[in-house]
Design a protein around this nucleic acid. Structure first.
Lengths: 243, 243
DNA sequence: ACAAGATATAGTAAAATGTACTATAATTTA
DNA sequence: TAAATTATAGTACATTTTACTATATCTTGT
């Protein structure tokens, strides 16, 4: 069997039936992860209309006719947080036939990471509806958003072990203990403290600062910051981040 | 700024302008990899019509209105090879505004792995146009297919190191040297023979057979086959394939 | 039949890495 | 100033990786 579009002998522009193939909607949905020092959280909106009234949903939007998917996602993110240049990675596309009651909508899912402290809701936007939700406390979600979230979390857990993207979730200046806690909650494991330090420092990706964490009850720890240039340089020489 | 679709106070079904958002075409494109014992190859078709007349292209097709993406990809694969139950993994979606001259088409790219010996072109289909092309000898390709291929190859190289999917490219019965050659060409590296054997065998994923490779000039090597059940069992116990 | 050629398979020792743990330092609070 | 608590350094053992050597097994040519 052969269809119009793939048969080289058929000129699709002369087939009016082709219109039925151009009736899809495309949306982007973005799973936004944050970390507040204790919990890993995800930015969800609450729907104020049917279908799925009052359900939690991943922020997303239809893609405009002349807009590419990344641009659309950045627009969603900017509308929601006011931020630009956020870590963004395409996750997977969900194209089930009945996933959307309004029509045939395929959604290109992304996930992004940001520092919760930077999150600055814009009042004129969805901000009032948006809330950081600990990933353990997710209720039912609209559409197939729960499935999308699950895939996103799995991807995040894998990604964070193979690329130094965890830093996107931390304040620019952090202690090694902060970093360890992040990884422990993210991956749901425990690390030996001394060995974790050794391993991370041995990579040479962290820039020790001449500052210490203040206002802490006991001995303050040194602050570090991630050095993206160093990572770039090492990457080119074949270095692979692994944790 | 807020758009129709995401504003909870707007009922999209009452907005005729919404139609312009439902004018996308969605296609699937599948990068099919094979291995003939020497080269890693990719299954490409040659286009017989404008645009991109005579260009090489990744096999693909428009998704039908009531068809999900995986089904569509399986249809393409079956039409092309006559095979079913082939390894299939979603790669990434390419949704650039001008990537297709016919209209706004977003393509969901997949990649799949199959044993070249199983490949059995169906004459009534695209088979006459399809050819296994060594991945070093790719010419210019239609649309953004070169970009799609590049992403697919990168993904394959990563995937093959973290999941035992390389076996999908080999005959069901193979020697350890076969396996090593496959990985060496795929990853463009060299392995120490003895150590490669030890590492692979130590995983316990291979079933040694009571057969030897025949018709070989010198000492014949033992044949093995991959044991998917064993992998499943080990996976559940936290085993991670890594090479 | 047997030596030569070629690959398969086994084994081993050094190097590197990972793991578990102990010790010491630095800081705040009582 | 001592006690509490966390940060950081160090060390010894176990495990894994790496580089290499030795032996086994098979086919081909004489």
């Amino acid at each position: 069997m052969q269809t119009l579009f793939t048969n080289p002998k058929v000129d699709p522009s002369q087939h009016p039936d082709l219109n039925q193939y151009f009736a899809f909607g495309i949306s982007v949905d973005c799973v936004v992860f944050g970390y507040d020092g204790v919990d890993v959280k995800v930015l969800l909106i609450k729907r104020g209309t049917e279908p799925f009234l009052e359900y939690q949903a991943i922020p997303g939007d239809l893609v405009h006719p002349k807009e590419d998917a990344v641009t659309a996602t950045q627009r969603v993110l900017k509308d929601l947080t006011g931020l630009q240049n956020i870590y963004l990675e395409q996750l997977q596309t969900f194209a089930g036939v009945d996933r959307h009651p309004l029509g045939r909508v395929a959604t290109i899912a992304y996930f992004s990471l940001l520092r919760i402290e930077d999150y600055n809701p814009k009042p004129s936007s969805w901000a009032t509806d948006a809330q950081w939700t600990p990933i353990q406390q997710l209720g039912e979600m609209a559409f197939d958003h729960k499935e999308i979230f699950d895939v996103a979390l799995e991807r995040l857990q894998r990604r964070v072990r193979h690329k130094p993207v965890g830093f996107e979730l931390l304040p620019t200046e952090f202690t090694l203990t902060d970093l360890q806690h992040l990884y422990e909650t993210l991956l749901n494991t425990q690390f030996d403290k001394a060995n974790f330090r050794k391993k991370i420092l041995a990579m040479g990706l962290l820039l020790p600062l001449d500052k210490m964490r203040k206002a802490v009850r006991y001995r303050p720890a040194r602050l570090y910051k991630f050095d993206p240039n160093r990572y770039e340089a090492l990457s080119n020489r074949g270095f692979l981040f692994e944790l």
